[in-house]
Simulated scan of single mutants.
Amino acid sequence: MEDYHNKDFVFSRASGYPFVTKTVLLRMHRISNKTSIKKHATPHIFRRTHISMLTEAGVDLPTIMQRVGHEDTETTIGNYIHVTNKMKKDASDKVEGLYGDILRKAIL
């Protein structure tokens, strides 16, 4: 498309321009009404999910902040980054991989 607007919007029209937030919200409500999910959700949940996925993938904090437009670490860390079960398991696996032999010998 010749006049494509590439600003990396999550929800965009074929032209690249974003949908109006209200449109996304109405579609979310319509879909959720067809499920058994009762949790109230807004399009902002996708932002939180995106940041959690970046964190789980091991993307560094400055890159996450730049990607979502945060200027201070407190906003990103305090409000968006949470330790997930996958992150806990990955941490255990890393320790096991690096220090497993030492830990096993210490137990014996």
Rank of each mutant, 00 (worst) to 15 (best):
A41N: 12
K38R: 05
R47F: 02
M28L: 10
A57L: 06
I51N: 00
I51A: 00
H50W: 04
S36D: 15
P43E: 01
G58M: 06
K39N: 01
K38T: 06
H44T: 02
V59K: 02
A41C: 13
K34L: 15
R27D: 07
R30A: 08
H29A: 09
F46G: 08
H40W: 15
I37K: 13
T42H: 01
H40K: 15
K34D: 15
G58W: 12
H44E: 00
T55P: 09
I45G: 02
R48Y: 11
R47Q: 03
R48W: 10
M53P: 08
N33I: 12
P62C: 04
M28I: 12
T55C: 11
K38V: 05
R47K: 05
L54K: 05
T55H: 12
S32V: 14
I51S: 00
H29F: 07
H50M: 06
F46K: 07
K38W: 08
I31W: 14
T49Q: 09
M28H: 11
H44P: 00
K34P: 13
M28W: 10
M53S: 13
N33E: 14
E56Q: 04
T42M: 04
R48E: 08
H29Y: 08
N33H: 12
T35E: 03
H29G: 10
A41R: 13
T63E: 09
R47N: 05
L54H: 06
S52V: 05
H44V: 02
A57R: 03
S52M: 08
K39V: 01
F46W: 12
R30Q: 12
F46L: 09
K38A: 02
A41I: 15
H44K: 01
D60F: 10
I31D: 11
V59T: 10
T42S: 03
R47P: 03
I31R: 13
